[in-house]
Nucleic acid binder design. Structure first.
Lengths: 335, 335
DNA sequence: TTGAAAGCGCTAACAC
DNA sequence: GTGTTAGCGCTTTCAA
């Protein structure tokens, strides 16, 4: 890497002159400026990032902690974050907590040493389960701003971006009810997660509101320890009369369509299905899965914007915001 | 952030004493060491990353450039990279080129300013198409090591990690032939990519080797501009007699099974399908898609190890290696 | 118009 | 055993 010093020596001027010339300070003569710029361009000079960070006490880098990059939703959020970050001149450092609280703590710790100006994260499944928040509080105490998305913690005070999960699944159920569906099931691989619970709540509310009764046996909690397809198949066979399914996660809806089809049940004639999935996955079944688009990319962009604003006015303790991203049913053929 | 200086002041010793104590230099008395360590722990001191990077001329950070994070294969590679990086004490900065050469150049440029010690990347689709390599050569000239994976460039001299795509699809076709399949099609959404071409080559070779003839109309090039399902459906209807399909990418295999099923063609009785997919996607169809596992995580780990080794002995120009990760057919029910 | 010097946080060679 | 000093690359105040 070429440095200011190198340029200065070659031009036989001082380091500060070069620095000023490159930051077009009015102090420097036009002639010198153009000489400096020419040489800098020639050697493809760019200021050393670490020196800048050290000097300016800001890194223009955001730490992002994602529970699971193989989950399309998170991958899409990451995509949104990255796009917006580039747009605003930030880099992102990505850590994957792999749903482990220890890894989450470790990543936070590791990046809190001046590597980043702030964090964007969704808490790990384990963190939600055991409700241990110390590491987040430590972060805020150290004056490092943070934005939580999707999986957020109620008692941590920071900016947040979520979708209204209750409302979303309420809408999904309503859509099916409008189509005359009477026996609507709810299937989920994420009952442990907060979002999973909220989606179930929305389902519950819509069912109760409409039918004044609720059949708990129409809720299938798909265990991770066994084959998901098999569990869905057993469930459908046992509940032959169901005519609608809401899938709380991003894979079981597609599976349900495929399984139903293999059992001679046709969608959407005999069975309507709506899932919290995105179009790449919804396209894999015939018919295509109708979805609740979670606007993952938008969530990422919002989170990044909130964070950058927060970094901009750390001192002003503007009240923390919670942005709610709206969700609509996208009809692709299975509802 | 608490600094050495802060600690020094509080302890009424010099900065260098604190530094030495924390790096357990034998020069410092046991008593001082323990006082320093105690206070450092109390204030949760960690050395400033930027200062260290500046001083040591190494960042312990790797730049990773991924064409598309929504592609499960790349997401999985990233996962492998991250896991191994954590293991070896490195962070990763992730950029997404979004298949654009300009974004790729920009990311490279942006991180070449002392932000990272080296790069791991798969080149963008556009880069492969227009074969512009200058930015990579500039990188190597600047003495920044780089490892390419999956999508690699032949004429760039650096370490590489690939799978033997020709061999993989050859194996897939052979598997189907062994099962008595006579009319095997090849479908692909990635004909523009090198890996797509190699996979087609392997298919071609296996067909020629066995049947001594080749029917180009059995190759379906799925266009991104139109609905993929529709193209597959039209293709299957037009070629009713095909009894096997090799899918070159990670979605069209699953789609093919769903489409076939909707047409009353049952897999694997009437039609065998094998795809370059991973198990999360292969699980979505009934029957589950048999796959060629690309060992994405392993690719990531290998890439990281190669890079870290290269960083370790930059000077020694050990010959560049190309690691070839092997691939096997995993039978899930559709072959 | 230019340059010298200090300082961001850290380490290490060299005094004391 | 502890402290002083210089320097990593950069910006910025102050002096010339």
């Amino acid at each position: 890497m070429i440095t200011l010093k190198d340029l200065a020596k070659k031009l036989d001027v001082s380091v500060s002159t070069v620095s000023k010339a490159l930051n077009d300070s009015p102090e420097i003569s036009e002639e010198t400026v153009s000489r400096v710029i020419a040489l800098a361009k020639y050697y493809n000079y760019t200021p050393n990032k670490n020196a800048l960070s050290l000097k300016n006490r800001e890194t223009k880098t955001i730490g992002v902690i994602i529970p699971n990059i193989l989950n399309r939703f998170f991958a899409k959020v990451l995509f949104g974050i990255q796009e917006e970050a580039t747009h605003l001149g930030y880099n992102i450092i990505v850590c994957i907590s792999n749903e482990s609280i220890d890894k989450e703590k470790e990543s936070l710790q590791l990046l809190s040493n001046g590597s980043v100006d702030g964090f964007i994260l969704a808490v790990s499944e384990e963190t939600q389960l055991i409700a241990d928040h110390e590491h987040f509080e430590a972060l805020l105490k150290a004056d490092l701003p943070m934005v939580m998305f999707d999986r957020v913690l109620e008692n941590i005070h920071c900016d947040k971006v979520i979708i209204d999960d209750i409302d979303a699944s309420f809408k999904a159920v309503s859509t099916l009810i409008q189509k005359g569906r009477k026996k609507i099931a709810f299937i989920s691989t994420i009952t442990d997660l907060n979002v999973g619970k909220l989606r179930e709540k929305g389902y519950h509310k819509a069912i109760i509101d409409t039918f004044n009764s609720y059949d708990a046996s129409l809720v299938l909690n798909i265990s991770k320890d066994h084959d998901a397809q098999e569990q869905i198949r057993t469930f459908i066979i046992k509940n032959k009369s169901i005519d609608g399914i809401i899938a709380a996660d991003n894979i079981s809806g597609t599976m349900a369509i495929s399984v139903a089809s293999s059992l001679g049940i046709s969608c959407p004639e005999d069975l309507s299905v709506i899932g919290f999935a995105d179009n790449a996955i919804s396209n894999l079944s015939v018919p295509k899965l109708s979805t609740l688009d979670q606007n993952a990319k938008k969530i990422g962009k919002s989170a990044l914007n909130l964070l950058v604003n927060r970094i901009g006015n750390k001192s002003e303790s503007a009240d923390y915001k919670t942005e709610i991203i709206s969700t609509e049913v996208i009809s692709n053929g299975s509802d």
